[in-house]
């Protein structure tokens, strides 16, 4: 049963460092939730824990009533995951790959066929469905990964840099799809570095820095918390992640290159 994602005191330790350092977060159903943060802030670690691909060091995580550690199989059946770099079987064709994923997920063949037809046509890869995945471009592989993540109509859709490599048409389709997902009471979580996308698509946003959430809420919440009514997400992001004053860095760089 779909329900909110609840995370309490989540820690993930690598060596002496905490990738996630006591993270607390609640994501309600029907939301498009953006996870932002500089490189190495813990975004991928968080998403992989939610997908039951990585074990936490300590903490409490629930997707609805399910625990990603103990109910791994159930969680995986409710989640669609698009990894940062598409992990696919390169010696299969997209059609064979979708068929494999759908069978394993227990989708009826007629439903699978209908969905595959619609999705590959929407993403403009119908002429590639019989090519080996290994011979496809990065962007096409990303589309295959996205289709295979949404084809079972998951309750939770988790995209780690899911817009990477997409052409404008496919990016637009994906954004519309995410909104459609959310409107049907499903939860979408995605991490991105494209702040404009996050600002335009997400209902709520978290900014992670050093394994902790430094700010969380809607754009309005964040603006009022920062006391800057006119600021955009980029200003807030740079300010909170300690990179707000980039001018000296850019000047030094220019001098170095000259």
């Amino acid at each position: 049963m779909s329900g909110p994602i609840v995370i309490r005191d989540l820690y993930k330790k690598y060596s002496d460092n905490y990738a996630l350092n006591g993270l607390n977060l609640t994501i309600d159903t029907g939301q498009i939730y953006g996870i932002l943060g500089p490189n190495g802030s813990g975004k991928t670690t968080l998403l992989r824990i939610l997908c039951s691909l990585l074990e936490m060091t300590s903490g409490y995580v629930r997707l609805g009533e399910f625990n990603p550690v103990e109910d791994s199989e159930k969680v995986k059946s409710m989640v669609g995951y698009v990894p940062e770099t598409p992990a696919l079987y390169e010696s299969l064709t997209p059609l064979e790959y979708f068929s494999f994923v759908c069978s394993v997920r227990g989708i009826r063949q007629d439903v699978m066929e209908r969905r595959v037809r619609n999705l590959v046509e929407a993403f403009g890869i119908s002429d590639k469905v019989d090519d080996f995945i290994g011979s496809l471009s990065f962007g096409t592989k990303q589309k295959v990964a996205i289709i295979s993540a949404i084809i079972h109509d998951p309750d939770y859709l988790i995209l780690d840099e899911g817009m990477n490599g997409l052409d404008p048409r496919s990016a637009k389709i994906l954004k519309d799809l995410l909104q459609d997902f959310a409107s049907h009471g499903k939860t979408v979580i995605f991490s991105t570095h494209i702040l404009e996308v996050a600002e335009s698509v997400c209902n709520r946003i978290s900014i992670l820095f050093n394994g902790k959430i430094v700010i969380e809420g809607t754009m309005e919440d964040m603006r009022s918390e920062m006391g800057q009514k006119q600021s955009n997400l980029e200003d807030i992001f740079l300010k909170l992640t300690g990179d707000e004053d980039l001018k000296p860095v850019i000047e030094t760089l220019k001098r170095t290159l000259r």
Binding site: E96, S99, F100, S103, V104, M112, V116, S126, V129
Partner: peptide, 12 residues
């Protein structure tokens, strides 16, 4: 579209 053979074990 020529969909391949279907079914859990068969696909696996």
């Amino acid at each position: 579209f020529h969909f391949p053979a279907y079914g859990f074990y068969r696909s696996l």
